[in-house]
Amino acid sequence: MEYLQLFFFYLVALVAIVAGFCVISCKNPINSAISLVMTFFCLAIFYVMLHAPFMAAIQIMVYAGAIMVLIIFVMMLLNQGAEVIARYRHAVIGAFVAAALMMVQIIVLIKQGAVSATVGPISSDVIETVGHTELIGQALFTDFLLPFEIASILLLVAIVGAVVLAKREV
């Protein structure tokens, strides 16, 4: 059972990584976008495996649904063809080197560090009896009420800002 789980994890991780690679390498932005949706789905699967079904749901709805649709709309609106990959080869090489260096460093850091054992009260049993959505809701409307309200203002500002920016004449 455990091996099966691990096998499943590696499978999904592989899909996520391949899709991610497609995002950064496809010449056609639409293909990049579709690959990104694929990555989002893989992450949603991980969220379910991590006993966070609500997060998985909004991952699919907000990211894969709303945001990606918005991006694809804009792409169609601007009607950009396939792009030429960066003019300066040494810049591309430099980017790869820097990112690889960063990845190696982070992984070293993860290996070096020791994550503490379980400290909080939320175990998978609690989530199953109470329900994930209710737990999120409780946290959101008690401890994080102020940030929640501020987030609503942020969204309002973003809406207004988007309208103002995208309008032809202000």
């Binding site: 990584i17 995002v23 950064i24 792009e83 960066a86 790869f96 990112a99 960063m102």
Partner: peptide
């Protein structure tokens, strides 16, 4: 997560299309 993050970084640094 680290692998995905680094890939994202490469994309930001190399791609020319602002949407990508």
């Amino acid at each position: 997560s680290a692998i995905l993050f680094s890939m994202g970084t490469v994309g930001v640094l190399t791609r020319r299309n602002a949407i990508v």
